[in-house]
Design a protein around this nucleic acid. Structure first.
Lengths: 263, 263
DNA sequence: ATGAAAGCGCTAACAT
DNA sequence: ATGTTAGCGCTTTCAT
């Protein structure tokens, strides 16, 4: 207990215990060649004995690779990004890496601060769902990275993964129309979001194809959250209108909020 | 573009540019005393000019503090832990730290691997929702840490934060009883989980107080997930029984699954 | 107030 | 096959 509280053992402790030089110990531990099976065993045993654990800070320092990856998303609390985070984490672990996760909360300033943190931490790469409109420091970013989300298309040079919003909207509308709802009310995200424009554009196209005037559709905005959906739904319900038979929300959180708008 | 792709600037680059020694540059940048306001300005300006960003690996190496914290939870995909993660992350960022998040997926082996990763990364501390029954390496863990969850009470010496399951169950049952449901069916977590025993014990107490025989309560187990709740509910519905008027599930995910059991 | 130098733990190039 | 040494980028004595 008293010994276990002391300084963490270094490779030198291992080397001493095994009676070899620290480079030999390193070779044995990294699985390098040029090492007698006998000495390797001795070193490994010594490492176990002293409870040695390689210091990744030191390794990163020497190698220039920290073994860490970054993930910057708007909000880990949203199930969509929780799934993203989970997938990223599993993949990272499988490659022996760790994942630093940051939620920007749709705040460009926070996002920028998080990116700085990632650079200082010397992560080997990052996955980013950008919320900033202008990513002008992009070329100076200096980190390998991939974008997530539709806003990524503002940066055609950057690799990105996004949802096919157009197809999603079409599938949703097809479903509603086939159930007799020709003109569902809409609950969309904030005006600043690119995904919103994409959503709306597809709705318009779909309407035109059906000879429905898009202008008759009731529409409300809100944050991409349960609360946002709830408030938007309330505003819809307040309208002097014959009642909203069907509502199409931009994501699950908003839909949930809309369903709860009564309470 | 070509220059920006080159080696990240170090404090030496800053020092050179400012025409001082690297130690002076360090002093200026760390806000140390004993520095002329004039030279500090010059150094700061030089740092900006070359796009200097402090290398946290190196800092951690020297100081022994990595500026990173660890979070090990069963599953980031569960909204409860997503909230936990969000809170931890916000707090960490406020202290200038970063958060390494790991999901163990209820797998003790994965948990143990993640803890090893945290030690190697030299995190300054960790928040852990343990899933392993035996945490016998606890004294050798060698990291400052806090536990989350009811399983933490197996380790009375460890600081922990948990929910008051007893009170939660009582509130839930009170609500049901006051709505006329004297003997709700139960959907609980896996038998291995300590929280389940706690839940069940409180239900029994509550029943006894109401002169209800706990044995008449229908009860099903499942994983703490939407799927687990759905399956459990299906099994409940299959029972030759007069129908389940009320169901009390152990968490929101299971309740959601139960509600969806028909589809 | 500033510079020179040591050292954190590790690995790889360079001896032997 | 193994030992010696340099150096990753930083902060902090210790001199001056």
């Amino acid at each position: 207990m008293n010994q276990s509280r002391s300084r963490r053992p270094t490779i030198i402790d291992v080397a001493k215990r095994a009676g070899v030089s620290k480079s030999t110990a390193a070779r044995a531990l990294t699985g390098s060649s040029n090492i007698t099976e006998q000495t390797r065993e001795r070193v490994v045993k010594a490492a176990m004995a002293v409870g040695y654990e390689r210091n990744h800070l030191a390794v990163g320092m020497r190698s220039g690779r920290s073994g860490m990856l970054g993930l910057v998303i708007p909000d880990i609390t949203n199930p969509f990004w929780a799934d993203v985070a989970r997938g990223a984490q599993d993949r990272a672990v499988r490659s022996g890496a760790s994942l630093l996760i940051f939620s920007s909360d749709w705040d460009p300033a926070a996002e920028s601060a998080h990116l700085r943190a990632l650079r200082r931490a010397r992560v080997d790469g990052a996955i980013i769902n950008p919320v900033a409109d202008n990513f002008d420091d992009l070329d100076r970013f200096g980190l390998p990275f991939v974008f997530i989300g539709s806003s990524a298309e503002r940066f055609p040079d950057v690799s990105s993964v996004g949802s096919d919003i157009g197809q999603a909207v079409r599938l949703g509308l097809d479903h509603l129309v086939s159930n007799g709802h020709e003109a569902p009310s809409l609950i969309l995200g904030p005006k600043s979001r690119l995904a919103r424009a994409r959503f709306l554009r597809t709705v318009h196209e779909h309407c035109v194809e059906r000879d429905v005037d898009p202008a008759i559709l009731a529409l409300e905005d809100g944050e991409y959250t349960v609360e946002g959906g709830r408030h938007a739904m309330r505003r819809l319900l307040e309208r002097p209108h014959l009642g909203h038979v069907a509502v199409f929300a931009a994501n699950d959180m908003m839909a949930l909020g809309a369903m709860m708008a009564g309470s």
